[in-house]
Design a protein around this nucleic acid. Structure first.
Lengths: 198, 198
DNA sequence: TGTACATCAGTGAACGCGCGTTCACTGATGTAC
DNA sequence: TGTACATCAGTGAACGCGCGTTCACTGATGTAC
C-alpha cells in the first residue's frame, strides 16, 4: 500500500496532476491510469476521491481557473499602472510557456470544439472571466489616460488574449527555436501602438 | 445497398464530411460510425476507401489546408492593396464563423495539445503555412508603404492570426449574442493602427 | 500506556461498453466476346 | 444486341482492445476506554 493521505489533500494533489497531464496531452489523451501513476497510486484509487473522469477534469479546471485569475490579479496589483500591468501579464504568460507551465496550453486548447458539454461550458466561463478581468485593466488604462478613450475595452481585451494564443502554438510546433520572449516583446509594441496615444 | 460511387469520389466526399464533423465535435468526438452515417453508409464501408481513422483525419486536413490557403490567396488576388487584402481575409473569416463553416473552428482547435503525433505535426505545418502567407501580404504592405517598415512581418502575421482566434471562442460560447462582424470591424481598426502609419 | 475497534485510503481482479477494424458475403456496374 | 465474367463498392456480423468503473478485500491510522 502506498503512502496514505486524507482525501482532501489527495484530491488537491490529483487535481493538480490532472492539470499537468491535460496540458501535455489534452483532454483527449488524458486517462485515469496515467493520472493514478503520476501520483504513485493504482487506477481504482482515483475513485476514492472523485466520482469519475469528468469529476477529475472539473477539479483540474478549478485549479486552472484559480491560477489564471491570480495571474491577472497579481499583475494588476504589482504594476505601477494599467499598461505596465498588461505588459507584465504578457511577459509572465511568456515565461510560463517557456517553462512548460500548464496554464497557457490549457487556455489555448479551450478553443477546441467538442468534448463533454458541461466541461466545455466551464472552460468558456473561465475564458470569459479572464477576458473580463483584462477588460477591467483596459478601463483602468482609459481612466489613467494611457489608453485612448475611443478604444472599446472588450475588443482590446480580446486582442490582448490573441497576442499569446498563436505564439503558444508556434512554440509548441517549433520548440526552442521559437523565441517566445522576443516575440512577445515585439507584439507588445504593436499592441501598445494599437490602444495607446500617438 | 446504398448508392455506389467510385472510390475517388467517395474518398473526397468522406474527407469533406469528416472535416464538418471535426469542426463540430473536434477530433476527440470524431468517430467512424457518425462519418459513415453522414454519407449514408455503414461503418465498415469507410474501410473500402481509407486505411483507418487516422487516414480519414489526414484526408480531412488536406481538404482543410486547401480551403484555408485558397482563402488567403483569393483575398490577396481580389483586393486592391495589401491592407485591404488582410481586411477582406478577416471579414471572410468572420463570415465563415457566422455561417458555421468548418475552417475557423479547425484553425482554433489546432492549438490543442495532445492527439496523434503525425496529425499534430500536420496541423502545425498547416498553421505555419497560413501564417507565412499572411506574412507575405504584410511584406507587400511594406513595399507599398501601407505598413511601417519597422514592423516585423512575422510578428504582424501572428498578431493577425490572433485577431480571430479569441473571437471564434466567444462566438462558440455566446452564440448569436456575440456579433462577430462588429467585433472584427473594431479589432481591425486596432490592427491597422498597430501596423500602419500614425 | 495499552488494547479493541472503527474508519477509510489504497489494492487488484474483473466487468462491460464503445468503437475501430476485419472478413466473408452480396450484388450492382462495366467489359469482353 | 445479348450473355458470361470480372471487378469492386457496400453489408453485417463478429472480434478485440483500451479504458473507465465496480467491488470485496486489506491494512494503516486515529480514537475510545
Amino acid at each position: 500500500m502506498s503512502q496514505r493521505m486524507n482525501t482532501e489533500a489527495r484530491r488537491e494533489q490529483m487535481a493538480r496532476a490532472a492539470l499537468d497531464l491535460l496540458a501535455e496531452r489534452g483532454s483527449e489523451g488524458f486517462n485515469i491510469a496515467d493520472l493514478a501513476e503520476s501520483v504513485g497510486l493504482v487506477p481504482s484509487a482515483v475513485y476514492r476521491h472523485f466520482e469519475g473522469r469528468e469529476d477529475v477534469l472539473d477539479a483540474a479546471l478549478d485549479v486552472f481557473r484559480d491560477r489564471v485569475y491570480r495571474l491577472v490579479d497579481a499583475a494588476r496589483n504589482e504594476a505601477e499602472n494599467p499598461l505596465m500591468a498588461l505588459e507584465l501579464l504578457l511577459t509572465r504568460h511568456a515565461k510560463l510557456i517557456e517553462s512548460g507551465g500548464a496554464v497557457p496550453y490549457i487556455m489555448a486548447s479551450m478553443n477546441a470544439p467538442g468534448g463533454h458539454a458541461a466541461r466545455r461550458s466551464k472552460t468558456e466561463r473561465i475564458f470569459r472571466g479572464y477576458v473580463s478581468r483584462v477588460e477591467a485593466v483596459v478601463r483602468d488604462g482609459q481612466v489613467s489616460g494611457q489608453v485612448r478613450s475611443d478604444v472599446d475595452p472588450a475588443t482590446a481585451a480580446l486582442l490582448f488574449a490573441g497576442l499569446i494564443q498563436p505564439a503558444i502554438q508556434l512554440r509548441h510546433a517549433e520548440g526552442e527555436r521559437f523565441d517566445i520572449s522576443a516575440h512577445v516583446a515585439r507584439v507588445w509594441d504593436l499592441f501598445r501602438r494599437a490602444v495607446g496615444h500617438d
